[in-house]
Design a protein around this nucleic acid. Structure first.
Ligand SMILES: [Mn+2]
Ligand SMILES: [Mn+2]
Ligand SMILES: [Mn+2]
Ligand SMILES: [Mn+2]
Lengths: 156, 156
DNA sequence: CGCCAGAATTAGCCATGGCTAAGTCTTGAT
DNA sequence: ATCAAGACTTAGCCATGGCTAATTCTGGCG
C-alpha cells in the first residue's frame, strides 16, 4: 500500500471497514473471472453445437450465428479457434461436428447449465429469465457453489 | 433453419428434445451476457476505487493493480476509459477520485455484490469461495434474480 | 443442365484488455 | 538540496471477438 504523493486536503479517515478480503485472494478472484471469460465462448459453442445436432441432426454456422445473436463471420472465426483447440472437426462448406473432447466438454457444460437453470427456477424465476441469467452465471460457478445449488434444491 | 448440403450418412434423427428455448430469446440472452461483460470493468473498478478510498483514504493505480491482479499499464488504460465515460476524475501522478456518477455506480455495484455474497454464504459456502464466485456472478444477475436472492435469504 | 439464392469463407476494419519496455515524475531519505 | 526508488505514463505488441464487404461454393429448381 503506497503512502506517497498525497495532498493534505485530499486525505480521508480510513474507516477501518468490516470487510477485509485479503489482497491476494481478491486478485485471484478477478484472475479466475478473466480465465472463465476466456473459456466461455468455447463452452457456449460446443454446448450449442451439441444441442443443434440433437435437435435437428446438424450444426451449421448459419444456425449457430442465429442462436448466438452474432454474424456469420464471427462464428467462422470462433469455430476456427475451436478447431485449433481440438474441440470440433470440420470440412469446408459442411456441417460442424464435435470431437470426443468437444462432446465431453459439451456434456459438462450442459449439465452445469441445467443445474443453474433448475436452481434459478427453484427460486421462483420465470424460465426465460432463468435461462438468460444462467448463460452468464454458469461460467462463474465453482464446483463448491454448484454443489451448494444441488444441495439447496435437494432440500425442497 | 437450413436443410441443405447434407450428406445422407451424416443425418441424425431429431430427437424432439424437451427444452426448446426459442431462438430469439436465446440470442437475446447471449447478447445480454456480452453487454454485461462490456460494463464489467467499469463496475469492478469504481467499486474497488470506492472501497480503497474508504479503507485507506485514497485510490492509487498501483493499489488497484495489485487488487485486480493486473499490471499498472493495464490499469492506466482502463482508467483512461473510465475517465472518458465520466466515472472518475484524475490529475496526472495523483490519486483517483470517483465523480458523482462513479460513486452512484459504485454504490449500486457494492450493494449488488453484497447481496450475492450474502446469498452464497447463506447456501453454506465459505467466505473466500463466495467472494470469488460473486465477483463473476454479480454482473449476470438480473433485477428479478437479485430480488429472488433477497427473498430466499429473508425466508431463513 | 445450368442458374442463382443463400450458405460459407476471406479480407480487413475496430474496440477491448492483457502485456513488456522504456521514459518521466514525485517524494522520502540521506 | 540531491537523488534514487518506486509510482505513473507512454508506446507498442498481441489475442480476442465483434463487424461489413466482397468472394466462393453448394444444391435445389426451372
Ligand atoms: Mn454461457
Ligand atoms: Mn449455457
Ligand atoms: Mn465483478
Ligand atoms: Mn461473465
Amino acid at each position: 500500500m503506497s503512502d506517497k504523493q498525497l495532498t493534505v486536503d485530499e486525505r480521508h479517515e480510513p474507516s477501518d471497514c468490516a470487510e477485509t478480503p485479503k489482497v491476494e485472494t481478491q486478485a485471484e478472484g478477478f484472475q479466475a473471472v478473466r480465465d472463465a471469460h476466456r473459456s466461455e465462448i468455447a463452452e457456449d459453442y460446443v454446448e450449442l453445437i451439441q444441442e443443434l445436432i440433437e435437435r435437428s441432426g446438424e450444426a451449421r454456422p448459419v444456425d449457430i450465428a442465429e442462436r448466438m445473436g452474432v454474424r456469420q463471420p464471427t462464428v467462422a472465426k470462433n469455430l476456427a479457434r475451436l478447431q485449433k483447440e481440438g474441440l470440433i472437426r470440420r470440412e469446408r462448406y459442411r456441417s460442424i461436428f464435435p470431437t470426443d473432447a468437444g462432446r465431453a466438454l459439451a456434456e459438462i457444460c450442459r449439465e452445469r447449465h441445467q443445474i443453474v437453470v433448475a436452481f434459478l427456477l427453484s427460486l421462483g424465476l420465470d424460465r426465460e429469465t432463468a435461462e438468460q441469467d444462467a448463460d452468464g452465471i454458469e461460467h462463474h460457478v465453482s464446483d463448491q457453489t454448484l454443489a451448494a445449488f444441488k444441495r439447496a434444491m435437494g432440500e425442497s
